[in-house]
Structures are given as C-alpha cells and as structure tokens.
Nucleic acid binder design. Structure first.
Lengths: 334, 334
DNA sequence: CTGAAAGCGCTTACAG
DNA sequence: CTGAAAGCGCTTACAG
C-alpha cells in the first residue's frame, strides 16, 4: 500500500487522518493508491495504538422494551454523528451475572459504557462498572431530579412529576381515587431504583386526602400485565387506572373490555411513554409522552465528556414528560 | 501482571485462553495475580494479533421496526452464546450512503457483517458488501425459497406462502376479494426485493378468478399507514384488507372505526408479524406469526459458517409463518 | 511445560 | 513536509 504510493507507512496514516502537514502532491498519490487497492483502515488497530478510542458499549437487559429501544436509537444516532461505533450486549434477566461476567462483556478495560439500569442485571452492572471504571460509565434509569443532581453518572427523566400530573388530571376529572398498575422498576422488586412513577402518583393522592390503594405489580410483558390487572378491572369501585407504560395500558383496556367495562365510561385508563401505537388504539390512549431518544443522546454526550474529563456534568436538554390527553380518560360515570 | 505471577507474558496468555499445556501450580499463581490486579484482557488487541475475531457488525436501517428489532435480538443471543461481540450501525434512510460510507462503518476489512436489507440503504449495503467481502456477509430480507436456495448469503422467511394462506382464508370466509395495504418492501419502491407478501396475495386471488385490486402502498409508520388506508376503509365495497404488518393493521382498524365501519362485521382485517400487542387490541388482531428472532439466529449461524468456510449452506431451522385467527376477521355482513 | 522472538495494523513523538 | 523508531496488548509459531 505505502509502497504503491511510494511513501512511508506513516505518511499514509497522515493522509487517512487528514493531517495538514502533507504536500498536496503526496496526498493525491496516496489517495490514488487507496482507491486502487480498496484500502480500508483497521479501527481495531487504530484504537489499540492509542488513537481515538471512539467506541461505546451499551449494556441493556431487554431491547424489546420501548424505553431502552428508543434510548439505544438515540445513543446510536449521537454516536454515529461523531463517528463512534456502538456495541450492544444484552444481560439476560434469567441468568445470574457475576461481576466477572459483566466485565468480560467489555472489549477492553476502561471501555466507555452506557448501562440501561431498569432491572436487576442492569442495576448490578451499574454497580460493577461504578467500582471498576467510574469515569467511563453512565447509567440510564428512572431517577429523581435530586438523584440526578447528586450522581453525575446518572441520566434519566423525572417521571414522578409526570405521574403526579396525570394523577391530578384524573382527580380533577372527578375520580375518587386512582389505582396504579406498576412496572417492575416501580415496585422496587429488583432492589434498585425507587418507585418514581408510583411516588408521584401516591403523593398527589395523599395531598388530596384520598385513599392510596396498594399499587398492583406487573411484569414487563403485555401478557403478564393482562393477568395482573384482572382483579382491578373486575372491581366496579375502580374507576381510574394509571398504568406504568402503554403496554400495560393496552392490557388493561383489553381486560376491561372482556370484563364488560367500557372505556372511558366505566373506567379511565392512562398510559406512560406515548409509544407509536398509543395514538391508534380504539379508543386512543391518554398517556404521558417521554422522549427516550433524547435521553439516549444525552447519555452519550455525558459519557463522552466524562471520558475525556472535559465537563463535570453537562445538562442534557430534553423535553419534560408531558400528559397527552386522548380518548381513554374521562369523568366517572355515576 | 506477568511479573507479579513471576511468569512470562505468553504464559499468562495461555492461562487466560485455557490452554491445557500449563502446570496447575503456574496456572494458580497466574489466576491469583489476575484476581489481585483486576486484570481484564483487551479483546481489540486479541483480535488484532490474529486470535479469534469473534465479532459481528449489524447494518440496519431502522431499529424501530418490529422485524429488524426482533432479528437483532436473535443475533445478539446467538452471538452471546458463543461469546462474540455485536456492533450495530444504523443506516439513515434519509441519507444517501456512498459505498465508502458503508465500508467505513465496519471496524476492519473483512469484518463479519449482517445486513437488514429491508429498505434502500439496506439493499445498497448488501450490494457493496457482496462485492467487497462476499464470504463475510449475510443479508436478511424478504426472499422466496428459490432466491434463498440460489444465493447462499441470503436469509429470510418465505412470507409469500403465509400471505397466500391468509388470503385463501379470507376468500373461504366468503369475501369477494381481498385488498392489500402494502409495506414499502412489497411495493418494490426501493428498487430492491420483490413483493413476496403481495405476490402470494395476488396469486391466490388470480387462481380463484377474483379481481386483483391495486395494492395500496404505505410507509413504515402507523401515521403513514393511517393516511394511506383512508380511501380503502371509506369504500363500502372493500370488505377485507390484508395488511403488510401489524402496525399497518392497527392503523386500518383505527381508520375503519373513525369511518364508522365495524370490525369484523363490515370489514375484516388481517395483519402480519404477530407483534406482542396484536393479541391485546380490541378486537384482537388476526395475523401471521413470524419468528424473526429465529431468523436472526439463523443469520448469525450462517455467517459464522461462511466466515470459516466450514459449511456451504447450513439450513437454519425456524418455524414457518403461520396464520393466527383471532377476532378481526369474519364473513362479510351482506 | 515455559520463554524469547516476531508481528497483527496502526499511532504518537522524535528526527531531519 | 516526510521517514526511522518504538509501542499499543495481545497472538502464534519456534525453541528448549
């Protein structure tokens, strides 16, 4: 390659990396040779040699969840714009991952890593990497504004506020109280994060002096939610349910339908996330919009700054979660 | 590291790689040192040095589509089981990707690559890699059994057969004909694959001597489908619509509802893919189950064999697409 | 069973 | 502006 162009190895390197200290004539010769030989630089070698280590690894538990999937998309876009590469590694919730297992997923020591900390393996991975390489990791999860401010390696949205808003909205509609079908991260069953969505919901009920019903825990899948929500929809006293995400809400709508309860006549249902399908169910789902893609983008930006130590904590700007009222919510019938 | 254990660099390498030619005592010393220093092998260096190049890059256009997303999950699982790493790179359909752009996404020449060839950038990428490194690439897309047999670098499901089955089912129900709301890959607008779902559908109609209506092209998003399907649902002559995927079917259900047409009374709707939500819409969606995760797994297996030249074409076994009858289909009302 | 040698494809200083 | 040197962290032969 260098031979064909009649130059040395490192002159080729300069041309490829766009160094200004190359004579135009030499550059042309090299570019010609590159084209002729179909030369492609080897990025592995480049980063080994201490060049730009432009890669990020994403540790996530379940890519079929809307939030992580959207966040991953945001990470990928942001990374691509800067020509970084993205590796993903899925932590199986069924496996027990030892610390060594988690470490072994990274391509090298100090690999910049983003963790989707929305379940048990994710929480574990967060802890392991925080110990091992605190400046080359960032975790995405459900955190309050206070937690985010206190821990510069966390990224997330304060969905407690949005849950509060949604609850207040249902109360204002005239419902005596609001029930809650909770995603796993809200019930604290995985030992990790707090129950922010559930907290915002409970806080509003308490402040309004209403009964605070026990939250009903659900798994992540629609089928699990369908099962979990049965007692709730069967109870005529229940007139409003705030669901932890739109999949849970869909399961609730389905269960309500089968139980002969009309929506929103007999029962109001509010979801979370504003997934693409939510505007097209019948009736269309009232939900809370969350911009996970921006969160992913923000996580990448934060990681990049942490790795090179440039800014302690850039504040990534993304839209606040926001209630979108559609057709599944209304005043109680009686 | 090697110093602490009192051995040479390459003995450490042997221990880490589980070589049998190491004395038990030496091995223990090395393992101890590894634990003490928190040593983690650098995979980049390993693959550079000619060790196992255990990584695969996935080129995909849009991870928010159910098929590619599920296939990616299958790839990831299969890769992880063999301790390969997975890199993803998203091709933006809005960008025009030059051949060089596509090549530049690979971490090195000859990188094993799986392409999701379900849109224009994907088709382009498939072509580029087929030229550059035919033995280190595999493409996933909508291909017939014949195409799959002829091109050992292709993987896919013969969804034409399933489309035919669904069409026959609707005809048997008594519908005069069946309309088709088509995904972009079925209309050939991106210049690439054939219209297999559309072909299976049209073939059955022709064989039954029915009118073959012009397929209605839709984009990938639910909003685009909602717009595209309006004329169809407004037409009382239309009593059955086969949709290119479940998102399109959801849009159709919504549009039909707003147009005052009941499902399945006035209109039968059949989807494709059996996405998780499809069993929980009201009414529950009749659809064709497709096991994309298995396809992803199969693509990985095929790629692995192609890279090491071991088997010309292992036949990856996955379930055939299969019609799942639920509640959105029935006999025409009149 | 273990070490001294050479090299993977690049890079960053260091000379000139 | 360009080349000769050293090295990134590993590996695979080759000796012993």
């Amino acid at each position: 390659m260098a031979r064909l162009a009649g130059v040395s190895h490192q002159t080729v390197s300069r041309v490829v990396n766009g160094s200004p200290r190359v004579a135009a004539a030499t550059r042309d010769k090299v570019l010609e040779a590159i084209a002729e030989l179909g030369y492609r630089p080897n990025r592995l070698a480049r980063s080994l040699a201490g060049g730009a280590a432009e890669s990020v690894t994403v540790l996530t538990a379940d890519t079929s969840l809307y939030g992580p999937e959207a966040a991953l998309r945001g990470i990928e876009k942001a990374a691509r714009a800067l020509d970084w590469s993205v590796q993903i590694s899925v932590l199986d919730p069924a496996d027990t991952h030892s610390d060594a297992d988690i470490i072994a997923r990274l391509p090298r020591a100090g690999e910049p890593t983003i963790i989707m900390a929305h379940d048990e393996p994710g929480m574990r991975a967060k802890q392991v990497l925080l110990d091992q390489q605190p400046h080359a990791m960032v975790a995405i999860g459900p955190y309050t504004a206070e937690e985010l401010a206190a821990s510069p390696w966390l990224v997330g949205m304060d969905d407690g506020k949005a849950a509060a808003e949604a609850t207040r909205y249902l109360l204002d509609l005239g419902h005596a109280t609001v029930h809650h079908l909770a995603i796993p991260t809200s019930t604290g069953t995985f030992g990790g994060g707090k129950a922010h969505r559930a907290e915002g919901w409970a806080r509003v009920l308490r402040e309004a002096g209403r009964t605070v019903p026990e939250p009903v825990p659900s798994g992540w899948t629609i089928a699990e939610a369908f099962k979990a929500v049965q007692p709730l929809v069967a109870d005529p006293e229940v007139t409003a349910i705030l669901c932890g995400n739109d999949h849970l809400a869909l399961a609730t709508m389905r269960a309500a339908h089968l139980a002969g309860r009309s929506i929103p006549g007999d029962l109001s249902v509010v979801g979370f996330d504003n997934t693409p399908f939510s505007g097209f169910t019948t009736p269309a789902l009232t939900t809370v919009n969350q911009d996970f893609e921006s969160v992913g983008r923000g996580a990448f930006e934060l990681l990049r700054h942490r790795v090179d130590g440039s800014i302690p904590r850039p504040v990534p700007g993304w839209p606040e979660p926001e209630l979108i009222v559609r057709e599944t919510s209304g005043p109680p019938s009686s």
